[in-house]
Design a protein around this nucleic acid. Structure first.
Lengths: 198, 198
DNA sequence: CCGCCAATCTTAACGCCGTTAACATAATGG
DNA sequence: CCATTATGTTAACGGCGTTAAGATTGGCGG
């Protein structure tokens, strides 16, 4: 079915990709706890030690999976970020929907350094790309995203909401009031943009 | 040295407490990955299966540790929340400092359900207490915290900031601009309070 | 076309983990 | 005072990440 997922002989053909896809599948099926190198290898129809030909260890596999997650997030919000008809709140809602649709993946992407290596080059590059899309809409023009408190506040608010909702720290009823919550940041951002903008 | 930490005979005396304290110590020394039931038991000078006399399994121990974390957080912010001279931003800064001083513990408290049981009675009670202190300062009077978007937005913003800083998704230089970022929420909260307040 | 090399994959083993079962010890209270 | 019960021990199970040693194979230089 898939392009190269059919293992035939001794060699797989595209095991690296197959392992990442198997990891993504296990992540959503059984949660992060269900993702083990051995389980991923099993899922890909390969022996337990085979992944070590493509990844130095578990953290590297997990980082690769998280990188795929950031790419998907970027692809999801890119059209919204460049569409002037979409508001900041629209962007936030789409972001939250991505997290709710892929809870295991999202938790991996933003989890502590236990599973992934935050300094992995591919990974931090992918996460920066996603962030800059957000900043394009939120930030004041002419400043680079990393120095601008506006986008950072927006990302933090949205990310915090997602985490607290997912881990049941705030009640699920709040799901329907997300736009209302996100809007609370708008006056502050507007004021800040006016003060510091071009 | 400690009150009852000195194991003497066959029976420990207060093993439950000792295990939680050992877990807290390992959490900060080696990170969440270094906390295993066996390591905790070892640290407490007791056999590998001894913890099962006090906890049903690893998740229950971890939940107990996280509960202690929420109690500490509550004790830290309680005086600030009830002091009218302290602003919302002061509260947020103190919160973030707690997280930075206890990164392993904080990550456990707000981590996914993999290690802890979010529905644990003690745990959710302790986390609610801490949240209500925040709401006392941020929320509009007369509404219960859980229904008020203001406190939820404030908590989300602060929590998101902490997580993104800890996991190196935003640069560490932002540490010095936290008050500036937190202030971005103030206009929105003020407006919202005026509209819906008593 | 052939032979060799490097990449890829396998099996086997190590120590660590969570958990359970069977048993030992000690504190307590009827 | 002795039996019950809470607390602790040792031993074992399967699963995990990782490494070592060897098998298989695709591809490239001759």
């Amino acid at each position: 079915m898939n392009s190269k997922t059919q293992a035939r002989g001794y060699h797989h053909g595209d095991l690296r990709t197959a392992l990442i896809e198997a990891g993504l599948a296990l992540l959503e099926r059984d949660g992060a706890a269900g993702v083990s190198l051995r389980a991923v290898a099993r899922q890909a129809g390969v022996s337990q030690a085979a992944p070590y030909a493509h990844f130095a260890g578990k953290r590297e596999l997990m980082s690769a999976i998280a990188t795929v997650g950031f790419s998907r997030l970027r692809d999801l919000i890119a059209p919204l970020a460049s569409d002037p008809a979409r508001s900041i709140v629209d962007l936030g809602v789409a972001y939250i929907e991505f997290a709710k649709a892929n809870p295991g993946l999202y938790a991996l992407m933003f989890g502590s350094g236990e599973y992934i290596d935050s300094r992995d080059v591919q990974l931090s590059h992918a996460s920066r790309q996603a962030f800059e899309l957000l900043a394009m809409k939120v930030g004041r023009r002419g400043s680079n995203a990393v120095d601008d408190p506006g986008p950072i506040a927006a990302w933090s608010l949205v990310h915090g909401l997602v985490m607290l909702l997912m881990n049941e720290k705030i009640p699920a009823e709040m799901n329907e009031r997300l736009p209302e919550i996100l809007r609370l940041l708008e006056p502050g951002i507007a004021e800040h943009t006016r003060k510091g903008g071009v």
